[in-house]
């Protein structure tokens, strides 16, 4: 390429690039046409139903959950985010002592959102919640007890 050919080629390519950015700039001045950012606290975040925010335990309106305390999730968890504390309670119907869930402790700070616990759960007691507003100033608040106080096992889960 000749000396002046190079110059003109250079200016041409630079102008091509400027047309691309300019093509976004000028519509953005008045109409904000190509603005892709979301003004988060003002506009709600778009979260899809399958989003893995944190593990929660489902409770029905009678404050009953489906967790039998079988510890399958605790075994499946790769990094010890789940601890199950269980107790022996006397079953009012049969009168026998039975293994029951006392506390389902979930360390959100250690969880890597791998879904293995939810997959391992035989009774579908735990599930993903899309909540992602988990920031706290205290790390201790990230250790949660998933079963609500006073909740008990839903009837008919163990069959």
């Amino acid at each position: 390429m000749t000396y002046f050919g190079k110059i003109f080629y250079g200016i041409k390519t630079l102008w091509t690039g400027m047309k691309v950015t300019g093509g976004y700039f000028f519509p953005n001045i008045t109409r904000k046409k190509y603005v892709i950012t979301r003004q988060y606290p003002d506009e709600p975040a778009v979260v899809f139903p399958r989003f893995k925010g944190e593990v929660v335990m489902w409770h029905n309106e009678n404050n009953e959950h489906r967790c039998t305390g079988c510890q399958a999730c605790e075994i499946a968890c790769p990094n010890g985010s789940i601890e199950i504390i269980w107790k022996r309670e006397v079953d009012p119907e049969t009168g026998k002592k039975k293994k029951m869930l006392d506390q389902h402790i979930y360390h959100l700070s250690m969880c890597t959102m791998c879904s293995l616990c939810i997959q391992a759960c035989p009774t579908n007691a735990i599930m993903w919640s899309t909540n992602f507003h988990n920031a706290t100033y205290d790390r201790g608040l990230l250790t949660k007890v998933l079963n609500k106080p006073g909740s008990k096992l839903m009837a008919g889960v163990e069959e």
Partner: peptide, 13 residues
């Protein structure tokens, strides 16, 4: 501001 509009953002607001 200009950078924001070039980069599909709003800039300081």
């Amino acid at each position: 501001r200009v950078a924001g509009y070039f980069q599909l953002r709003l800039g300081p607001n």
